[in-house]
C-alpha cells in the first residue's frame, strides 16, 4: 500500500528542484474545525426550521455558503505556489542538516503557508508579493553519505481554517553528511616510507627539503617555521618557506588505523579538518583511492566527500 502510494506520488509530483504546484498537484479536504463548523451550522438550521425564522435560515445559509467558498480561497492560496530548493550545505553526522527552500513572491499575497516534513509542520510563513521567502528546514543527520530529504509537506488553512489545501512536492533535495569528527591519536606515516612502522607514532616530518626564502609571519603560521635566528638578531618575525616535497607530506591512511570502518573514517575526518585548519598539506589514502597531497579548501572538501561516500553506492 505504502509502496503504491509512493509510486502514485512519484507520478503525480515527480522530483524537481524547482516546482510550481499546478492544479493537479494541490489537494483540499475539510479540517476538524470545518467539521465543527458544519455541526454548528446544522444547529442553526434546526433553530431556523423549528422556529420558522427566515433570518435564522438566512444566516445559516450565509455562513454555509461562506464556508463552502473559503475552499476556493484556500485552494488558490496554495495552487501556483513556487518552491525552489537551494543547494544545501554539507554537515557532519550528529548535526542537524539544513535544507533551504525559497518561496518567490507571486502575483498575490499568500498568507499562512506551512512547510515541514511531517505533521505538525515546523514553519509557517506569509509569502508576500514583493520579496522571496527563505524557509529553513532541518533533519537530523544520523548517517554519513547522502541524506535525501523526504517529500515535503506544504499546506495552508487560510483564510478560516475550514479547509486545508496541501501538497507533497519532492524538491529532490539531498545533503552530503560527513563522518562525525572524532579526536584520536593518529599513526602518521610519510607517503614515501615504504617500510611503514608498525608501532605507529613517527616523528613528524615537516616539509623541510627545499628552502625557498622568508616571508613575514602572520597569525596562523606554524611557530616551528619562524626564523628564530633572524628574530634574535632583532630583524622581526620571519617565517621560513619550504616547498614541500611529495615524500614528506602527512599521510592520513585508512589502513593505518584500527577499529571498524566508521571509527576510522571519523578519525580521518577529524585530522583532515585539523590539518586543513593548520593549512598543512596532507594525503588521504583510502583502500580504493589516494587524494593529494594538497592543501586548501578544495582538497579538504574532496577528502571529506571521499570520506562521506566511502563504501557507499554511487548515486
Amino acid at each position: 500500500m505504502q509502496q503504491w502510494l509512493r509510486r502514485w506520488w512519484q507520478r503525480r509530483l515527480p522530483p524537481l528542484s524547482q516546482i510550481r504546484l499546478s492544479q493537479r498537484q494541490v489537494f483540499i479536504v475539510p479540517t476538524v474545525t470545518g467539521a465543527a463548523f458544519a455541526v454548528a451550522l446544522l444547529l442553526m438550521l434546526l433553530v431556523a426550521i423549528n422556529y420558522q425564522n427566515s433570518l435564522a435560515y438566512a444566516l445559516a445559509f450565509l455562513l454555509g455558503s461562506l464556508g463552502l467558498l473559503t475552499a476556493l480561497h484556500t485552494w488558490r492560496n496554495l495552487a501556483g505556489l513556487e518552491l525552489q530548493a537551494r543547494t544545501p550545505e554539507p554537515c557532519f553526522v550528529g548535526e542537524q542538516a539544513q535544507f533551504a527552500v525559497q518561496l518567490p513572491g507571486g502575483a498575490y499575497r499568500r498568507p499562512g503557508i506551512a512547510l515541514g516534513w511531517r505533521m505538525p509542520l515546523a514553519v509557517q510563513t506569509d509569502v508576500d508579493t514583493s520579496r522571496d521567502v527563505l524557509v529553513k528546514l532541518y533533519l537530523p543527520a544520523s548517517q554519513r553519505g547522502w541524506l535525501r530529504a523526504p517529500r515535503l509537506r506544504v499546506e495552508t488553512r487560510f483564510p478560516l481554517g475550514i479547509w486545508v489545501a496541501w501538497s507533497q512536492p519532492d524538491l529532490n533535495m539531498r545533503v552530503l553528511v560527513y563522518p562525525r569528527p572524532l579526536e584520536a591519536g593518529l599513526p602518521l606515516a610519510a607517503a614515501h616510507s615504504d617500510d611503514q612502522r608498525e608501532d605507529g607514532l613517527l616523528e613528524m616530518r615537516h616539509g623541510v627539503d627545499d628552502y625557498q626564502g622568508l616571508e613575514s609571519w602572520q597569525l596562523g603560521d606554524s611557530l616551528r617555521r619562524i626564523d628564530w635566528k633572524a628574530w634574535s638578531r632583532g630583524q622581526g618575525l620571519w617565517v621560513k618557506q619550504f616547498n614541500e616535497l611529495q615524500g614528506s607530506d602527512t599521510l592520513l591512511d585508512y589502513d593505518g588505523l584500527q577499529g571498524d570502518s566508521e571509527y576510522r573514517l571519523s578519525v580521518l575526518c577529524f585530522h583532515v579538518l585539523r590539518l586543513d585548519a593548520e593549512s598543512r598539506p596532507y594525503l588521504l589514502r583510502l583502500p580504493d583511492r589516494l587524494l593529494g597531497p594538497d592543501s586548501g579548501a578544495g582538497h579538504r572538501d574532496a577528502c571529506l566527500v571521499a570520506l562521506a561516500l566511502f563504501g557507499k553506492e554511487p548515486e
Binding site: 420558522q52 445559509f61 455558503s65 463552502l68
Partner: peptide
C-alpha cells in the same frame, strides 16, 4: 468573504425547502 457568499446564500434561501417544525 461575506460579499462573495451572498449570491450563493440567496440561492439557498430561495430554494432550500422550508420544513415544518420538527418539534415544538
Amino acid at each position: 468573504l461575506l460579499g462573495q457568499a451572498i449570491p450563493l446564500a440567496l440561492l439557498l434561501f430561495v430554494f432550500f425547502p422550508r420544513l415544518e417544525p420538527l418539534w415544538s
